[in-house]
Design a protein around this nucleic acid. Sequence first.
RNA 1: GUGAUCAUAGCUCAACUGGUUAGAGCGCUGGACUGUGACUCCAGAGGUUGAGGGUUCAAGUCCCUCUGGUCACCCCA
Length: 430
Amino acid sequence: MKILGVKGMNDILPDPLGPMSVWQRIEAACRARFDRYGYREVRTPIVEETRLFARSIGEETDIVGKEMYSFTDRKGKKQLSLRPEGTAGVVRSYIQHSVHSKNPITKWWYGGPMYRYERVQAGRYRQFHQIGAEALGVAAPAMDAEMLLMLDGLLRHDLGIQSLTLLINSLGDRADRASYVQALRDYLGSHLTGLCEDCKKRYERNPLRALDCKVPPCQPILDKAPRIKAHLSSEARTHFDTVLELLSGMQVPFEIKPRLVRGLDYYNRTCFEFVAGGLGAHDTVCAGGRYDDLVKTLGGPSIPAVGFALGMERLVLLAPKELSRRPEGPAVFFVSVDEEAISTCFRLTESLRRAGLEAEMDQRGGSVKSQMRRADKVHARFAVVIGEQETSEGAAHIKDLRAGEEVPVETPVSFEDLAAEIHLRLKRSS
RNA sequence: GUGAUCAUAGCUCAACUGGUUAGAGCGCUGGACUGUGACUCCAGAGGUUGAGGGUUCAAGUCCCUCUGGUCACCCCA
């Protein structure tokens, strides 16, 4: 009985066995883009107290209700959970270290694995990775817009994702939302017979979710449902309009989707999603919004905030092929002709590495042919064969594995000059 | 939590309506070329046909259970 990895939790193997280079390129693009917008990386634990998630995400949500990996701490009676999303931990950290009192504006980004016990599906796993960012301390709509500009640049420009659409909506403030939910519930209540079973449940538990329903018979009813827009306070409405104006002013395309809602309870005002084709049943690669009440809800001061999270696995699915170019192999591969030569190769390999070059050898020895095959297999640029003669002369030939058939006769390069010579040849051919 | 579908060598896949010893390509190892890769040719290693049970003279093939993969619903990044 083989021991397998846990369902829904995947290995990401190094290239060319796996898509590691795509992951790394996406991560690098995120870092570079976030840097430019003044976001600094924060790292928080993967495990937090269960209460934190219950309070922030919402006791009634599916995430908290049935999808968390929770357990009791070994000693005390602490209930702990693997984080199902990143914002809660980041905000907890922000409050715990009184960051607001050191700086009125905080821009942080984070990345790492998240855990939700769900049925695995295309673009959805039990351990999945998010990269997200939070801007705390600014209530102005310009912060929402700046964040969307950053994301549009990252996804469309840096990562070259085609068929990308920014969906945007406003959820209003707490009071707006309450009055809207009431209105929506009244409306759905009067049309219960025409709704699907799921929507009947949503009617009771969370009417907003019904707006996302895909069942055809529900559509005409939902199309005529009251819109949140009519329930927005004038402040919330102005905020939303300003965000849209700023986006238009910078030529960032978007689509207002009145029925867009969020899965987590803490959002208010601006909420958005970047969607793209090619993700199977899901189409969201990035989602986020404003959460002006969360910091206070978690016991901190009243600090407004906006944030988002990108789904790495989904990004990887969408990434254009150019991102998966195979990485370079070692600069030099040392081949040993016999047992004695192995120690010379060992020395030379290390000396090239100390000189900053990627060098490799086959410590097992074996036939020259098989070692040359290995050199080719790992895409080494040069091969250096070491035998009795090279060891006694302290010099060796350098074979260019990319040069093709003709190998011009040349004078051997002394071991001392090897690193410099390789550096020179690499520079010349680049 | 619900449903569909699949599982044969390291990988991608064959094996007529159940019927001899489960094959191929790629990859791996070695050789042709006794110290030089990629191309060619030759050879070799590698399988409890996902696991367990059942039907049958006979099961990779049919039935049941489990595990795992994939996809969809719910929900979500």
